[in-house]
């Protein structure tokens, strides 16, 4: 469902064509991208620094902002490694073996791309919420999942599980299993083969998947919003914190938090470009 963007591009010759048409098309495209991408990007930082550096610093060092940062980092720190392991295992399975249920597995991996994040949150509320299947049992044992940190982590893991698998799978399929087989004939055990040959081969696909997974994990809003309950300073991630501030008309605060998330997006794009460049080079 998600067009994989790690594509090794071949340079095509550029056609001349009439200069008028060429520059009109370039102009239109740049105008559109300027209005929709560049200006909003500039706007985030302009709004964040509207009242100067001190107001900005105060907004992002507020205890609630710091706790939102901690929660966002925690959720990503749990979701990314789990989905990394899952992604590599699933990619190996799908790329190397034919077995009954294989296409079902592929479809399931694409699921979070086609399901609304709100519905993703909803299924966990139905599972663990007060009226959910496990609700009464959880209440009895004083365990909190929904409107608590575990729910946020669960929703994040769900939303981000396809990213690593989706990026590693095409790389593994493209490379074939010759090198793995060579390692086996040379006497390597399965794990030895995996660590010494398989993993280094798909390294850039893995890194690419991890940064996309991380960006989404830190920025997820819909699913997390459903399970969070918006308990200030406890169950608010950075995006939720920005929402709360915005709804309280604290625009500088909201955009200060938003600017952190925007920086994350920009870093993601830069690393992504670098990985693309490296994987073309190697």
């Amino acid at each position: 469902m998600h067009p994989s963007t790690l594509v090794l591009r071949r340079r095509t010759r550029t056609l001349g064509g009439p200069a008028v048409i060429r520059w009109t098309l370039i102009g239109l495209a740049l105008l559109f991208l300027g209005v929709f991408l560049v200006v909003p990007l500039v706007a985030v930082f302009t709004f964040a620094f509207q009242k100067g550096w001190e107001a900005y610093a105060a907004a992002i060092s507020h205890p609630e902002a710091l706790s939102a940062m901690r929660l966002t980092l925690t959720a990503a720190a749990i979701a990314v490694p789990l989905n990394l392991v899952f992604g590599v295992a699933a990619a190996w399975l799908i790329a190397r073996f034919r077995f009954p249920g294989r296409s079902l597995l592929i479809t399931l991996i694409d699921l979070p791309f086609s399901v609304s994040p709100v519905i993703a949150g909803l299924i966990f509320v139905l599972m663990f919420g007060r009226q959910g299947w496990l609700g009464p049992w959880l209440a009895e044992h004083d365990l909190h999942v929904i409107f608590a940190v575990p729910g946020i982590v669960l929703a994040t893991v769900f939303i981000t599980f396809p990213f690593v698998a989706r990026e590693v799978l095409p790389v593994m399929q493209a490379q074939g299993s010759d090198e793995e087989e060579a390692a086996l004939t040379l006497g390597a055990s399965g794990w030895r083969m995996f660590w010494r040959v398989t993993l280094p081969k798909v390294k850039w696909g893995v890194i690419y998947g991890v940064i996309l997974c991380n960006a989404r994990a830190m920025g997820e809003f819909g699913a997390v919003s459903v399970v969070s309950g918006h308990v200030r300073g406890v169950t608010t991630t950075l995006p939720l914190h920005a929402e709360i501030l915005y709804n309280e008309y604290d625009f500088v605060g909201a955009f200060a938090v938003a600017s952190l998330l925007t920086l994350l997006a920009l870093v993601t794009l830069v690393v992504k470009k670098y990985v693309e460049w490296r994987s073309v080079a190697s």
């Binding site: 074939g176 010759d178 090198e179 087989e181 060579a182 390692a183 004939t185 040959v197 081969k201």
Partner: peptide, 14 residues
């Protein structure tokens, strides 16, 4: 204990 030379050579590129 077989020595195999693959058609694609299958050298470990890294």
């Amino acid at each position: 204990g077989v020595g195999v030379v693959f058609q694609s050579y299958a050298l470990f590129r890294h």
